[in-house]
């Protein structure tokens, strides 16, 4: 019998369809962070759960082929640096760290609220990737290795 990674075909099929919906929903939550409940962290968690869904259904090897883990590490660090960068631009433009330097727009529009949507997107990317990488790193520990005593 061929040993197959991941769960059964039913779970795989459902995951294949639903994971994109999960991603879209997470992105929606991130982009409407300044208007509705949610925001960068909530949406990021949803995106991370989407990744984890694939991870659980398809297994470790598939994830290695599907995603470039090194790139995800880079993305995580980059979004953090950009976050600090926006803060520093705030100092340069208006004198306060993370101060708003864009037009605030009209209330209740998607593109409004100055830098807040940008920051939400960066937080979303950071959280979504970081949370997935935490579970990924935990799964890399081999429980039987490296015993002492």
């Amino acid at each position: 019998m061929k040993s197959q990674e991941g769960m059964t075909i039913i779970v795989k099929t459902v995951t294949r369809i639903s994971v994109w919906l999960i991603f879209v929903y997470g992105i929606y939550i991130i982009f409407h962070g300044h208007l509705t409940p949610g925001g960068g962290f909530g949406g990021g968690v949803i995106i991370a759960l989407g990744f984890l869904n694939v991870f659980l259904a398809y297994g470790k090897e598939y994830i290695k082929k599907w995603l470039n883990i090194g790139l995800l590490h880079d993305l995580e660090a980059t979004s953090a640096i950009l976050f600090v960068g926006i803060g520093i631009i705030g100092i340069a433009m208006t004198g306060g760290f993370l101060a708003n330097f864009l037009s605030k727009g009209t209330l209740f529009r998607l593109f409004s609220a100055g830098t807040i949507p940008l920051l939400n997107i960066l937080i979303g990317a950071k959280v979504g990737v970081a949370l997935f990488l935490v579970v990924w790193s935990l799964s890399l520990f081999h429980i039987d290795e490296g015993g002492e005593q």
Binding site: F41, L138, F141, I143, G147
Partner: peptide
């Protein structure tokens, strides 16, 4: 509370990682 949830998430992940490593060492 949102902030403190994020912090707790980090600490819990840290603790779980430590527990896994402890299990590796002590079985």
């Amino acid at each position: 509370v949102l902030t403190s949830i994020v912090i707790e998430l980090g600490i819990t992940a840290m603790l779980v990682a430590l527990a896994v490593r402890l299990y590796q060492k002590y079985k």
